[in-house]
Nucleic acid binder design. Structure first.
Lengths: 142, 142
DNA sequence: CTTGACCCTGTAGCATACTACAGGGTGTAT
DNA sequence: ATACACCCTGTAGTATGCTACAGGGTCAAG
């Protein structure tokens, strides 16, 4: 157990608060670590990476529940392959949808930038169009 | 005012609750609309698009405050061009960072999928590596 | 021993983003 | 007039994700 870290060290390295680490443990996002005789937690170094992942995924819009699902996508020897495959594919689709939406915002911002350079007048609001999808609405011809 | 909508219609079309529409108005995400003599709100049709944008942007991890900032990136005739440019560029960078992070998760999931197909053993946890960045941690050689 | 940083559990509170409800008014069809 | 769906304001509550605190124990250095 050469790399065991106290909760404070984990929190510092992962960029979160100590309470957050305990909170994630309560939620099951982090496995409960072994303890010293004093009751102090001793985390494997891997925990830092895990919490960083959680942080980043949250920033991308995933709820903690969703993050837990992502983290569960490990290959375990006992998990049937077809089951993993379906779960991974679902997540992939979700991620691809998010990426497409981000691309649309990006494109619109680039157009805004171009319009700014050219001094062209903008009479529409292009940012609202960026995330328009196939839902119908606001386009009635009355 | 051919396209004026009651709050219930806006909510239905935008896919949110009536209370949410009022909430967004209180937050300033939606301009307060004109009223009938009865006090009923009459929203322009554009509001549906606006709320949809808010919804989608939230799903991508933007806070409502951040969404408000995105929505404010309209070209107004009175806004100096250099100011708009800087704001847009900041948002672009943020969006590009999020896209890169999503791409990394995507790549990892695809690798997981491939590993599943080939029946290759995975001894690491690739999902955690997906969002590793240049922060140092968990890699100490003791 | 003292000091200060760190740890523990458990409870309460804050921030964000809604969501529901009370009490009452409005609009439309029967 | 009645019934029902919808509207209003204002207040309170819920869910999520922390964040802070109380009360007390541990650790290491001076």
């Amino acid at each position: 157990m050469g790399g065991a870290l106290t909760i404070g060290e984990v929190a510092r390295r992962a960029g979160v608060a100590v309470e957050t680490v305990r909170y994630y443990e309560r939620l099951g996002l982090i496995p409960p670590p072994p303890r010293k005789a004093s009751g102090y937690r001793l985390y494997p170094e891997d925990t830092v990476r895990r919490i960083r992942f959680i942080r980043h995924a949250k920033e991308l819009g995933f709820s903690l529940r969703e993050v837990a699902e992502l983290l569960a996508l490990r290959l375990e020897p006992t998990t049937p392959c077809a089951q993993v495959k379906r779960r991974v594919q679902e997540k992939l689709q979700d991620i691809q949808r998010r990426m497409q939406a981000l691309q649309r915002i990006e494109k619109t911002l680039e157009e805004l930038l171009g319009a700014c350079r050219e001094g062209a007048p903008i009479t529409q609001c292009p940012i609202l169009e960026a995330l328009e999808d196939t839902e119908r609405g606001g386009k009635r011809h009355g």
